[in-house]
Simulated scan of single mutants.
Amino acid sequence: MTKWTGLALMALLMLTLAACNADSNDAKKGDEGAAPKEGETQTLKVASNLPAMIDMMEAVKPQLEKEGITLEIVNVSDNIQPNEALKNKEVDANFFQHQVFMQQYNDNNEGNLTMVTLIYHIIYGGYSKKYDSIEKLPDGATIAIPNDPANIGRSLAMFAENGMIKLKDGVGTNALQSDITDNPKNYKFQEVDLLMLARAYDDVDMVTLYPAYASPLGLTPNEDAIVKEALNEKFAISLVAREDNKDSEAIQKLAAALTSDEARKFIEENHPDTMIPAF
């Protein structure tokens, strides 16, 4: 064998190995996101931050296991991390928010999050340690509400529905304090971080709370809220994914599990005073 023949054979061998490696990589890429084969399981990461939602996902885990889905619940400590993690593909979905809050995040962060399915309604209301009805709230009463736009609007719309204030025509749940056109009892609305609202219960005349934050205070909406909102689908707690994975088999199986008869039974048996199925 001449020197040039040997070099030619070595070059051919290297090209062959490179082609095999490329084929292998292409095969791996083709497997990404594929549904699990029979006998295999697929891990689905879902972020949440409240016990009731986490408990509900725990309840449907066995159902998903039978369908080849291992549900990994990522417990976070605030209401910012679930959307950041989902946008950055650190998790596959989240379960903690309503449509208005999600859209607010998308608008402010160039997000591509999307609703998958409605899960349940929660009863949003106002609670007072000092007064047992909104009629007894004094002139100039201080009312604590969440400080994010989605929940400011929700709170003000609830007050308007119950005749406490009037808002500009058409603003609805997009209202800000600047949209109040009539405030006959001169209520002062104090905007507070959502996670800190429960601490204001002792200090203000009324505070608006979600059931998850009212419950540790021993309060339930049906028994203790002196003002409540009408149910609205855009405020239903929902399963949220990204545009690129919302239709995946795993996400759809999770959606089916969270809207199944077993899920309805879980809500009715464990949270009858605070959660109403939205499916």
Rank of each mutant, 00 (worst) to 15 (best):
L13E: 06
T2I: 00
N21T: 05
I226W: 01
L167N: 13
I73N: 00
A35T: 03
G30Q: 15
L195W: 04
A22M: 08
T259Y: 11
P149W: 08
V171L: 12
K234C: 00
R242F: 03
L71G: 02
L118M: 09
L194F: 10
T16P: 00
N25R: 11
G33Q: 08
A175W: 06
I123Y: 12
D23G: 03
L195Y: 10
M14C: 04
D179V: 14
S260R: 13
L15I: 04
A200C: 04
A19N: 00
E249Q: 14
N88G: 02
K265N: 13
I165V: 14
D224G: 09
Y131P: 13
K188D: 07
L7Q: 05
L50F: 06
D273W: 03
K130S: 15
S155Q: 15
E161F: 07
N106Q: 13
F159Y: 09
T117S: 15
K66Y: 08
S128T: 06
E65P: 01
S77P: 15
N174D: 14
D55T: 06
V192W: 10
L239I: 12
D202R: 06
K3T: 12
D179I: 14
I123M: 11
I152L: 07
V227K: 05
V204D: 10
I180D: 09
L64I: 03
T70Y: 02
C20R: 02
R264Y: 08
I237L: 10
D205N: 08
K253P: 01
L156H: 14
F101R: 12
T70I: 03
P51Q: 07
T181N: 12
L137M: 04
T220P: 05
A225K: 13
A241Y: 08
A47K: 03
E268M: 11
M206D: 07
Q42R: 06
T142W: 06
Y201K: 05
T41W: 04
P184C: 02
L231F: 10
K246D: 01
S238G: 07
S260Y: 13
Q103D: 15
E110W: 04
I69M: 10
K228F: 05
L254D: 04
D261C: 01
A257H: 07
M53P: 00
Q177I: 15
P272G: 02
